[in-house]
Amino acid sequence: MSRLADTFARLKKEGRAAFVPFITAGDPDMETSFAILSKLPEAGADVIELGMPFSDPMADGPAVQASSMRALKAGASMVKVLEMVKKFRKVNSTTPVVLMGYYNPIHAYGTARFAHDVAGAGVDGLIVVDLPVEEDEVLRVPARAQGVDVIRFVTPTTDDARLKRVLDGAGGYLYYVSVAGVTGTKSGPEDAVRAAIARVRAATDLPCTVGFGIRTPHQAAAIAAMADGVVVGSAIVSKIADNLGKPRAAIIAEVLELTRALAGSTHAARHARVNA
């Protein structure tokens, strides 16, 4: 089984949800970013979403936008993102790493070469924000051939017919976007998220993680009680922004402290299947 499937199967057995932190590779610089990445598992990360910085992150709110700009300014590139994963795999062979970003840098890299190189680096999944079902075959097919899952989104605008289409060819897990909007603003109303997860569960066995707007341990616990995973991005990269200028060790410590708090409450929340 793949690292992703292994992880979600193990967590299901343990009756808890995955904690999935997001950081942008290279934010605020390559070295600090790698230090954070390598310590995320011991702070409670079950799956890591690693952002590939892009100049025009149009689905992201101010926090992730700023994070992306910091990384680019620090010299992050696609090659450096992959090197970072390779280096991570030397110290961690079990925690799944999912690269998240926009299509153009992948397009520029070449989809076939990209699929090959991410697999070689030890990447487990890809989330490409602006590559919907209609367009993702060009990446999904070569990635799948390399054993890398392309993770798809379900959103508040996804109706039943669309859900069927999204599930056809979906791999790894599903990313439920809790609210129609950009990252880091508000989270969706709990009832709506619960109903959406129930609808997804009725249609697939793929794990369903929830992201967008989850900032506090309290919110993470509420989502963890319903979903198979909790994604937190903006709150974590904001922690980096808030501590810029401090010594590297302090930035790392702040980020890991927040991660531990979020992971702790995610793991403590009993994970009751909605449709069980």
């Binding site: 602006d130 919907p132 079902v133 989104f153 999204v166």
Partner: peptide, 20 residues
């Protein structure tokens, strides 16, 4: 039908926007 002019065009938007 997919909005392509040869190799160009298409619909590269976030899933939330696809139904719209």
């Amino acid at each position: 039908a997919g909005g392509h002019f040869g190799a160009y065009g298409g619909r590269f938007v976030a899933e939330t926007l696809m139904p719209l």
